[in-house]
Design a binder for these strands. Sequence first.
DNA 1: ATTAAAAGGAGAATGATTATTTATTAATAT
DNA 2: ATATTAATAAATAATCATTCTCCTTTTAAT
Lengths: 142, 142
Amino acid sequence: MADPQARLEQMLAKLKSRNFRLTPQRLAVLQILAASTNHPSVEDIYEEVKQVFPTTSLATIYKTVSLLKEIHEVLEIRFTDSSRFDGNKPYPHPHILCLRCGRVLDPELPGVDQLVAAAAACSGYQIVDHRLNFYGICPDCQ
Amino acid sequence: MADPQARLEQMLAKLKSRNFRLTPQRLAVLQILAASTNHPSVEDIYEEVKQVFPTTSLATIYKTVSLLKEIHEVLEIRFTDSSRFDGNKPYPHPHILCLRCGRVLDPELPGVDQLVAAAAACSGYQIVDHRLNFYGICPDCQ
DNA sequence: ATTAAAAGGAGAATGATTATTTATTAATAT
DNA sequence: ATATTAATAAATAATCATTCTCCTTTTAAT
Ligand SMILES: [Mn+2]
Ligand SMILES: [Mn+2]
Ligand SMILES: [Zn+2]
Ligand SMILES: [Zn+2]
């Protein structure tokens, strides 16, 4: 994972370049996403933002995260119950979810690009996105 | 894809061995899943069953599909909007979804087992399941 | 045929996500 | 600075796939 501060600057620059405004609530969401390594849910972000801005609405978190998705500064990973978000690697990459504690991490897998290429080749599809999700029990929960 | 009739027999045998009852509605759902190659949604199955048993409830389709999932005779693939089901290969395998027409097919990809093994090795997780989904535009829609 | 358990049908409830409406706030012009 | 305008936040209603509840019907075993 890169430096949270540098990552935050990137996000801020993108927001600015697209002429979106920087509000305190947005900044709070950006900071959480830039700093977190645990793939937080909307609810997770909400709880954290509320500590600083208690009147914040859940819808604001949804809208901010949705905006960040549009400008490709956050990746949404849909799991069975709800979505989790990665603000550090806002492009498709593999994930592993612990079915017991919910921990999500990024495995460093070789050959992902080849796999995508193979999928395109054998199907004839133009592939624009992918989700590679693994489910299991993390070392702590075993 | 294997012979639909043989696949149906397998499903029926599993139902019987687990002492689940065979009802006309269930048989209809099994037949659809055993014969289909297009990864139908619950709604798709519902529309087809209704042609034979017009009073069938949507909840019955949900319950039947859920039962089949429990006994590992169908695979659920969750996409953004709704789930699709594979009754022919009821075990994890890659899928490609066309974002325009919704077509889902099974790419024959090499190296999937190695990828799962690599994910387990580098993370320490005990992996019990996975979803490898690719999104793009199918040849017909390009 | 009887019986007990399982399954079906209808519609209400759930819950994550979206949309809508109204109120603030910030940017720009005058 | 003040007014004008547009963007954004907050609150809350609506959506929609899925699940649940309650009651009736069917199944399969005796
Ligand atoms: Mn990640
Ligand atoms: Mn399949
Ligand atoms: Zn765990
Ligand atoms: Zn298509």
